[in-house]
């Protein structure tokens, strides 16, 4: 099994981190750059910024965050939210992001995946998929933050994204997101086993053992979580120690 990555996700609104982060070591808990630096130091393998800004100048604000982050953070980071064109992708990549994540825009226009992959390379194209259980081991893709059902089967879309040139899949379980009940390992393993590109599991982490489940039972290549890290309940180091104890190969803390 390849080495698993542990990825904190930061939700950013108008250039500020949302979801009540409060570490004693941070001067400004709402500053995405400072938080990203903190996670780099804490042993995170990668970071994801999810831009949830609704205003029309969202792209410019996010590009500034990316530019400032790239000067201080030296682990890979992905920017998602509102990327609808090659121009949007170019702005983020030229500002210093390593990858862009596309979700609803890719469903609306699958060619966007191949267009971005063609211009910038597959390694920087993450296709984010929000999926919800639709029946016995069957999952449906949702868009627009989980509000719109598409009728598309998750594995079918993930395979299509792979053949269009996606470098990896960020797979969120709508059923588990926010529940703290753990990753949906049935969904994760279904998609991870069907693909030849890496799958990042997302949605539902509440305790350390959930990370182990995501890797061992979910066959995830990477494990993403937000609130458990931000609230300081679980450290990246503790996650890695537990993964290693459970026989999951990861870059140990301090390496």
């Amino acid at each position: 099994m390849p080495n698993v990555r542990v990825i904190p996700c930061l939700d950013v609104d108008k250039g500020r981190v949302v979801k009540g982060v409060n570490f004693v070591s941070l001067r400004d808990a709402g500053d995405p750059v400072e938080l990203a630096e903190f996670y780099d130091q804490s042993g995170a393998d990668e970071l994801v910024f999810l831009d949830i800004t609704a205003s029309s100048d969202a792209r410019e604000i996010m590009a500034e965050v990316v530019l400032a982050t790239a000067q201080k953070v030296f682990i890979p980071f992905t920017v998602g939210g509102g990327i609808r064109s090659n121009d949007d992708a170019r702005l983020m990549l030229r500002s210093g992001a390593d990858k862009v994540s596309i979700n609803s825009a890719a469903i609306a226009n699958p060619k966007l995946v191949s267009d971005i992959a063609f211009e910038f390379g597959s390694q920087c194209v993450v296709v984010a998929i929000d999926a919800k259980m639709a029946g016995e081991s069957s999952y449906e893709v949702y868009t627009h933050g989980g509000r719109v059902a598409t009728g598309i089967d998750v594995t079918e879309w993930a395979l299509q994204a792979q053949s269009l040139g996606a470098g990896e899949i960020l797979l969120t379980s709508m059923d588990r997101d926010g529940t703290r009940d753990g990753f949906d390992v049935s969904l994760t393993s279904l998609v991870a086993d069907a693909l030849s590109i890496p799958v990042i599991a997302s949605g539902g982490v509440g305790k350390i053992s959930h990370f182990v489940e995501g890797a061992v039972s979910g066959h995830a290549d990477a494990l993403l979580a937000a609130s458990v890290f931000h609230f300081g309940e679980i450290t990246v180091r503790a996650v890695k120690d537990e993964l290693l104890r459970s026989g999951v190969s990861v870059r140990p803390y301090g390496c």
Partner: peptide, 11 residues
């Protein structure tokens, strides 16, 4: 011989 390509990981 690798299960997943690209190799996108710390090694």
């Amino acid at each position: 011989g690798a299960p997943k390509v690209p190799n996108m990981a710390w090694n």
